[in-house]
Design a protein around this nucleic acid. Structure first.
Lengths: 328, 328
DNA sequence: TAGGGCCTGGACAACGTTGTCATATGCAAG
DNA sequence: CTTGCATATGACAACGTTGTCCAGGCCCTA
């Protein structure tokens, strides 16, 4: 900028004015400055600007795994909102590791992001207290924050799972299996709770062998599914706790002789093309991201009162697999 | 930091030394400083640090659409490499709009990212010349840069398409349709070239009605597919130019009476569960991202000679749809 | 024509950090 | 006891920008 000023024969501040489109510069002067800028290929250094102004016009997104198709639309929605507010998005993946989540969140704070959207991996977020006090807007998505009071945007995991299981029950099933992630993950716990509630509402006693918790890698999901399909009281339907589980269960069911009903949590691509189509309880990932980001910027505007918990509804999509009658 | 220094009763520079783990500080002093840091909840302001040091330890990623499942693994791979180099990833989507790509890339440069990984939307990247001269490492992925000489990492779109079409020919097809994106997109043009090459190699004259270019939204893809399947010389097989096209074509084929063979470019999830399984020419998105990011950091190390063009091989995955014999 | 107000332009400090250099302290060797 | 050296610490400038404040020139009015 110094060079530009020298070349244009004007003061430093005048260049600054031109660069930022501030008023109070003669067209003639502006032209000279613009010329110098072009000639030197000058571009404002936002680091210095940030240092001076305090705000960085960037927000951080800590998610679990970008390669998970569920987070693509979410991340995209957050970016869209950020863009609408003229902010850039810095993101990183925690890989479901609480330490990495913390490291990442703090690194983003050190970069002085204006706000943070976090899909938590851990369950203790007190480490963020100093940052929040220092003015970093914070919104948790998909899972609630641990040990601190903060904005949270999540799907109605409990209600969605309950409805999904009730749907199976309505189609005549009573022996219904549940395969889900570790209950220490909030979403998994809520979905399990929804499963149990639906079963209880229908006065069905759940056998332990119908529930498989904490399995997540395909091989173990496969084994879990196969076990609950054999045994002495085999299930006639399965409720899959997340998209990865659903995909594996679909594979297992394709190999079965008799038809087994299936409802999955989270939508999966091409679910309608399979035979039968896979019925799912769908969450709106984009809406989650959009809502969270909106809320973040409203925190920054100061138009918000206190932390809130927002629950977005899920939607049951029937495609065939959830409407199969019990067999065997 | 000033406050920390005051509280610990030491100089500014000593605090800086402690924060950065530099040597030359008595354990006793270090303890006092550490104590003050904890008490005040101090965290280093990386903006100021960046301003002073010149390097930001962050790289930018400009991609087309995060919600496209192809870019999830790519983005994740880039992030992984960045993380290994202690860098953060800032990203944004161009939405296939050249102006937006430029705006985004320049915004990232203004933030003084150390390097840029770009999936180009436009075909003129001369706007980056000043930045590259100024030392911003730059790598293009998936599609080559326009009008400038820069590192490029892409899949062998030509070879992949040629092999895919040749595969159909090997299974007896001669009337093969091609549905692809606008040829102004490099990947689309290359794949079309591959299709034509394979047909020519087999001495097949391609009818204009077999090729549909520039269609991209599902409704038009559907119509294009239906047209080439009816007509006077209906095709017996279709080569789909990208994952979105493939999905739509699968839907259309499911409604057809007679079996139609299909090979798609890009893998799609659950392709193996469909009936028939969808044969595809798969690119390794993660490898693309990893290679590009590696190259970026090697540019920054200075261990690179000049711009290079790296082509990654594709892989034909046979699952059934591409092995159907011609019918009708 | 003189005085006042407006408009343009510039000097300077400050943001928070780090690199450079100088100073102080302690210890060993001469 | 002095000199020399190593080590610990701090003072200060600089990174590039913007906010504040002031100066000078112009026009308008009385």
């Amino acid at each position: 900028m110094k060079d530009v000023a020298a070349r244009a024969g004007v003061g430093l501040k005048t260049v600054s004015r031109v660069v930022n489109g501030e008023p109070g510069v003669t067209p003639e002067t502006e032209r000279r400055v613009q010329e110098a800028i072009d000639a030197l290929g000058f571009r404002r250094n936002d680091s210095a600007r940030v240092l001076r102004k305090g705000r960085t016009a960037s927000i951080g997104l800590v998610l679990e795994d970008l390669a998970d198709p569920f987070y693509g639309p979410l991340s995209r929605a957050v970016e869209e909102v950020a863009r609408a507010h003229g902010a850039l998005l810095i993101n990183g993946s925690s890989a479901e590791d609480p330490d990495r989540e913390q490291e990442l969140a703090l690194a983003l704070c050190a970069r002085r992001v204006d706000g943070l959207v976090i899909i938590p991996a851990g369950d203790d977020h007190r480490y963020l207290e100093p940052e929040i006090r220092a003015g970093v807007a914070t919104v948790f998505v998909d899972r609630p924050a641990g040990q601190i009071d903060a904005d949270v945007v999540l799907s109605d995991n409990f209600g969605g799972a309950r409805d999904g299981v009730a749907h199976l029950i309505a189609h005549g099933h009573r022996r219904i299996g549940f395969i889900g992630d570790m209950p220490r993950i909030h979403t998994a716990a809520e979905r399990l709770r929804g499963y149990k509630a639906a079963m209880e509402d229908a006065d069905i006693t759940v056998a332990d062998s119908w529930m498989s918790l904490g399995v997540t890698d395909p091989e173990r999901v496969r084994r879990a599914a196969e076990e609950m399909l054999s045994g002495s009281t085999p299930v006639t339907a399965i409720f899959a706790g997340n998209n990865r589980v659903t995909v594996t269960v679909v594979r297992v069911l394709a190999e079965q002789q008799r038809p087994v009903a299936l409802v999955g949590f989270d939508d999966i691509e091409l679910a309608d093309l399979l035979d039968p189509g896979v019925s799912v309880v769908a969450q709106d990932a984009a809406a989650l991201g959009r809502t969270a980001a909106d809320r973040l910027f409203r925190q920054l505007d100061g138009t918000l009162l206190g932390p809130e918990r927002i629950e977005l509804p899920t939607r049951l999509i029937t495609r065939g697999s959830g409407e199969l009658p019990p067999a065997g």
